[in-house]
Design a protein around this nucleic acid. Structure first.
Length: 423
RNA sequence: GGAGAGGUGGGUGAGUGGCUUAAACCAACAGUUUGCUAAACUGUCGUAGGGGUAACCCUACCGGGGGUUCGAAUCCCCCCCUCUCCGCCA
């Protein structure tokens, strides 16, 4: 959520910047500014009425204390009038505030000035790539066939137990999952992140704070009986650790890592994009989160991006880095890098990580602030990224590493899997 | 699920109708003193919204919402949460 004070000061710039996100904000901003003026006028009127009323109440108190209770009658009548007035003004103020907030949450975060313009993922800027794109002969199998061949992932059984998009891992497939989780967590700890194990369900306030509610309501599984939401990413519970907190500048940056299973309804998805492990309702992910100062948040973004790249390098996967264009960047993000790995049999790039700087957008929603060196209170900046999401990593590993002896496990992983080949 | 107790500032915790944004203590910050650290002393120390060029002023906030009253942290109602005991249970 953008801050109204900032919008008030730079309304033209806000409209300009949102154009990069292909968001036409002029009408909303005008409405917002108009409501803002009315809101402040009403606030002033209400405050004045309350001030007068408070003053009279004090007088009445004095009269009672000095034994002149008989003189209080007229004053009581006056406060009765003011009370009616105050009630009307308060109602009006509530309406205006609610109206303003409703408009405010519709506005996406401002993109960073360096974000390229563009309509869709086609126009993302590829800023880096590394590794040889693997070319396989015609015998190369897509990962869902490899999974069946070596009996390591059973999609049909998952469907039987639950439904499509809930795969069942078994044998070396299950162990590979566990190995990747351990690998990612150990790497994160070595890079200075503190490991967390968060709840997999969150309440409404948490889902709102990170921006899943109200707009992405249908994307989450909702446990109605207790009004909890299954988390779509560990970002939600982990960032919410710091909701309503006031941090000290010297304890930042806070670096958190968490493994969790993630649940997404993915309503409306179908086709080859969702084949096999490409898109699931339940999947595993290690997420990294940083809370830092506005001065440092872009350094942190680069650091996180580099860190994710180091993981892909250790997994010996060819990858490229896309800086998302305005049209592809998410609602809450100011700047995002996507890491994509090459999937040799599907012959396409798969997004395995998305690293974003949300600046103060989430912090404003969740009142996450810090005291700077001068003791002044400010909104912190939040960042997060996948490090990494498992299914597509597994897909790429299976497809890219096909050999006559089986699927070769990258060296860095062997100490976690305990085997060198899936066979 | 049943019964009971409770929710006050960064923390502990006092406060049962006006003198309470709220004592006291701790923490924090600044200064004085000391050879450094520590200790002691002195001072500062809520957030948000609004008004004013400014000094400063006004308003709201004691889990959330409603009510009683001229006036509510305090009385009443509803809801949420936490803790203890019982029940159930990995």
């Amino acid at each position: 959520m953008l801050e109204i004070s900032k919008i008030r000061e730079n309304s033209k710039e806000v409209v300009q910047r949102l154009k990069i996100k292909n968001f036409e904000a002029a009408d909303l901003i005008n409405k917002l500014l108009d409501t803002d003026v009315k809101r402040r006028e009403t606030q002033k009127q209400l405050d004045d009425v309350l001030a007068e009323s408070n003053a009279i109440s004090k007088e009445i108190g004095e009269l009672f204390k000095t034994g002149q209770a008989d003189k209080a009658g007229a004053l009581k009548d006056k406060t009765a009038q003011l009370k009616v007035l105050a009630k009307d003004l308060a109602t009006k103020l509530d309406e205006l505030s609610a109206d303003q907030n409703k408009t405010l949450v519709l506005l996406p975060n401002l993109p960073n000035a360096s974000v390229p313009t563009g309509k869709s993922s086609e126009e993302n800027a590829i800023v880096y790539s590394e590794g040889e794109v693997v070319n396989l002969d015609e015998k190369a199998l897509p990962h869902w066939e490899i999974a069946a061949k070596y009996n390591i992932i059973d999609f049909e059984l998952g469907t039987k137990i639950t439904g499509a998009g809930f795969p069942l891992y078994k044998g070396k497939g299950a162990k590979l999952q566990r190995a990747l989780i351990s690998f990612f967590l150990e790497e994160a700890i070595a890079a200075g992140y503190t490991e967390y194990q968060p709840p997999l369900m969150v309440n409404e306030a948490s889902a709102f704070a990170t921006g899943q509610l109200p707009d992405k309501d249908g994307q989450m599984y909702h446990v109605q009986i207790d009004n909890f939401y299954l988390i779509p990413t560990a970002e939600v519970p982990v960032t919410n650790i710091f909701r309503d907190m006031i941090l000290n500048e010297n304890e930042m940056p806070l670096k958190c890592a968490a493994y969790s299973q993630c649940f997404r309804r993915e309503a409306g998805s179908y086709g080859k994009d969702v084949r096999g492990l490409n898109r699931l309702h339940q999947f595993d992910k290690v997420e990294i989160v940083q809370i830092t100062t506005p001065e440092n948040s872009y350094n942190a973004l680069e650091e996180m991006s580099k860190y994710v790249q180091s993981l892909l390098r250790k997994l010996e996967l060819p990858f490229r880095v896309a800086k998302l264009c305005g049209g592809d960047i998410s609602f809450a993000s100011a700047m995002t890098y996507d890491m994509e790995v090459w999937s040799a049999a599907q012959k396409r790039w798969l997004e395995v990580s998305s690293v974003s700087n949300f600046e103060a957008f989430q912090a404003n929603r969740m009142k996450l602030r810090y005291r700077n060196a001068e003791g002044k209170m400010q909104l912190a900046h939040t960042l997060n990224g996948s490090a990494l999401a498992l299914p597509r990593i597994v897909a790429a590993l299976l497809e890219n590493n096909q050999t006559d002896k089986g699927i070769k496990i990258p060296k860095a992983l062997v100490k976690y899997t305990g085997f060198e080949y899936v066979d």
